[in-house]
Amino acid sequence: MIVDSQKMKSARDRKALTQEDLANKARVNVRTIQRAEGGAPIRHETLADIAAVLGMPVSGLLGRGNHEELGEPKTPWEAEMQVLKRVESGEAVVSGLERAVMSVLGCSAEPNAENMPVLRSAIKLIESLMPSPWDEEFCAPLTFGSLLDRLEAVANLNGCLVELEGAGLALYLAVSTELVHVPRRSDEGLYVRSGQRPEYVSAVRLHISDYGSDRVRLDPVEKWPLETFGDDDKVPF
């Protein structure tokens, strides 16, 4: 995806961040920031991480010429839908969840006697890697106790993708930035305090569907683990 260089530089200046500062906070290489501000295309997932740090939605950084990347919507109704890309490696899922404050998993595949064992196995595996922002023991974002644990998770997901494809199914993924109240940790547990300002965070949407094109369009998520606010919403403080 191609960002609007001026929008990105202005947003970075408002946060008083150097390119190096932004790269560190978004956990990307400084060259990625330099290329993005120079007009080079970057991955949507990377842009979502950058947008979250800058405190704005991905759409606030986009330049013109991104329709081909996302797939040109044919109707106004399609323009409101979210584009998810087919997952080709377990690494894409793990790296996304390692940055996400919240995630959701959906399925539109019709279950039957033949594909249900594959669906059951895939959903159990994926859900085991999806921390909840309200779970003190397994709180988002996803972390691993060791490199071996991470490699095993990626390997298990790769095997899961093969099984899904064999059943005529596929896993799709989208990363977005959402405006939410992020729970804070205290000795008494997780909480959202009165007067707390909402923040833009990275969010991952995963969806199992019939194997078809490289992209699917879905209606926006109705319910995230955290309440979300639109840019024009009156946020309760």
Rank of each mutant, 00 (worst) to 15 (best):
V3T: 13
V3S: 01
S5H: 00
K7A: 00
M8W: 01
M8N: 03
M8S: 09
A11M: 06
A11S: 11
R12C: 05
D13I: 02
K15V: 07
L17N: 00
T18D: 14
T18M: 09
E20I: 10
E20G: 07
D21G: 03
K25S: 12
R27P: 07
V28T: 04
V28A: 01
V28D: 00
V28N: 01
N29E: 15
R31T: 10
R31D: 04
R35V: 00
E37R: 00
G38D: 02
G39Y: 02
E45L: 01
T46E: 04
A48D: 07
D49P: 04
I50G: 02
I50D: 05
I50T: 07
I50W: 01
V53S: 03
L54Y: 03
P57E: 00
V58L: 04
S59E: 14
S59F: 01
L62I: 00
L62C: 00
G63R: 00
E69F: 15
G71H: 10
T75D: 06
W77I: 14
E80H: 08
E80K: 14
E80W: 06
V83W: 08
L84C: 12
L84K: 08
L84R: 11
V87G: 13
E88N: 14
S89C: 11
A92G: 05
V93S: 02
V93T: 03
V93M: 02
S95F: 08
R99Y: 06
R99M: 10
R99I: 02
S103G: 14
V104Q: 04
V104T: 15
L105V: 13
L105F: 15
G106K: 01
C107V: 10
C107W: 02
P111M: 06
N112V: 09
A113M: 12
E114W: 11
R120A: 13
R120W: 14
S121I: 05
S121G: 10
A122G: 08
K124V: 13
L125M: 05
L125R: 15
S128L: 09
L129H: 12
P131C: 09
S132G: 11
P133S: 03
W134A: 07
D135E: 08
E137H: 11
P141W: 13
L142I: 05
L142D: 04
T143W: 03
F144T: 10
L147E: 13
L148H: 15
R150D: 07
A153I: 08
A155L: 12
N158L: 01
C160V: 05
L161I: 07
E165F: 04
G166V: 07
G168K: 13
G168Y: 03
A170I: 07
Y172W: 04
V180N: 05
H181W: 05
H181A: 05
P183I: 10
R185T: 08
R185Q: 11
S186E: 10
D187F: 09
L190K: 03
L190Q: 08
R193S: 15
Y200R: 03
Y200W: 09
V201W: 03
S202M: 12
A203I: 03
V204H: 03
V204N: 11
I208F: 07
I208E: 05
S209V: 02
Y211H: 13
Y211G: 06
G212C: 12
R215C: 14
D219C: 09
E222F: 10
W224Q: 09
P225E: 14
L226S: 09
E227N: 12
E227A: 15
T228I: 12
G230Q: 06
D231G: 00
D231M: 11
